[in-house]
């Protein structure tokens, strides 16, 4: 379960002073749900997800992840999430097995249960043939699998994927998306950021459109299309972006039409 309420994050910039990267963002996501965080580059998706994973501290607002507040109990949050992004790499001088084992140990898993869990994961992701291959020798697909294994080794209830498919070829991207769907079916709470409409359509039961640091709309894709009278997600997205750029959205700077926190 993820609940985000009026989250703000400001950064200090020498040239311009304090600047908002994320402003007044609210949404929620329940177990068995995939929330798609849709937005162009620089919209504030990564900042939002980094706040949820506790590496950034919100300037204001609240975020509860798996029952723990990201500010009050960051350790509790970190123990219950799995985080993966296109930029989270793997260690060059460690084998796939060692990598997953290392993080399993950091998550406080005992040797016996960890071994069992790893066998299950390696079977599920079909990683057994490159168990002992060093990170530097792995193909991109292998690296992504190793990353997924690392993300889920401690069986966290909440999973956060920050553009997990960016830069991957279609085959690997498809495999990654497939695994995310399978994880959803296991009842995980999943937040997934992307700039691809296609992926949102395929995966998400709920979408949050973020642009220039603010949430522009939240809700199930079907309801949003109906609400804004748009034929598909792509049109909806451009409609929302244009509305902001033309200045029409300034007056409606409140949270999107389907509020996550009624």
């Amino acid at each position: 379960m993820i609940q985000v309420e009026r989250l703000c994050k400001r950064f200090l910039d020498y040239e311009r002073g304090w600047k908002s990267a994320v402003e007044d963002v609210s949404f929620d996501c329940r177990p068995g749900e995939i929330l798609g965080l849709l937005g162009p580059n620089g919209a504030g998706k990564t900042t939002t997800l980094r706040i949820l994973s506790t590496v950034l501290r919100p300037t204001s607002g609240r975020a509860i992840v798996a029952g723990h507040d990201v500010v009050v109990d960051p350790q509790g949050v970190r123990a219950n999430i799995g985080y993966m992004s296109a930029s989270t790499g793997i260690y060059d001088r460690m084998t796939a097995w060692e990598l997953v084992e290392y993080f399993g140990r950091l998550y406080g898993m005992g040797r016996g249960p960890l071994r069992e869990r790893m066998e299950t994961i390696f079977d599920w992701l079909k990683m057994n043939d490159f168990r002992d291959v060093l990170g530097s020798k792995m193909s991109t697909g292998m690296k992504q699998k190793a990353s997924i294994a690392r993300t889920i080794v401690h069986d966290p209830p909440v999973l956060i994927f920050d553009e997990p498919t960016s830069g991957l070829d279609v085959l690997v991207a498809r495999a990654v998306l497939q695994k995310i769907l399978e994880l959803r079916d296991l009842g995980k709470t999943i937040v997934f950021s992307t700039h691809s409409m296609h992926e949102v359509e395929k995966l998400c039961s709920k979408v949050a459109v973020i642009y220039k640091g603010r949430l522009r709309a939240t809700g199930s894709p079907g309801r949003l299309l109906e609400e804004f009278d748009q034929p598909d997600l792509e049109e909806l997205f451009f409609y929302l972006v244009e509305r902001v750029d033309s200045g029409r959205d300034v007056a409606e700077a409140r949270v999107g039409p389907v509020n996550a926190n009624p």
């Binding site: 350790q75 989270t88 790499g89 793997i90 998550y107």
Partner: peptide, 14 residues
């Protein structure tokens, strides 16, 4: 540079 720092920071290790 390798992108593993973020992963480590998100682990429960303080």
């Amino acid at each position: 540079e390798r992108g593993t720092m973020e992963t480590l920071l998100i682990s429960p290790a303080s």
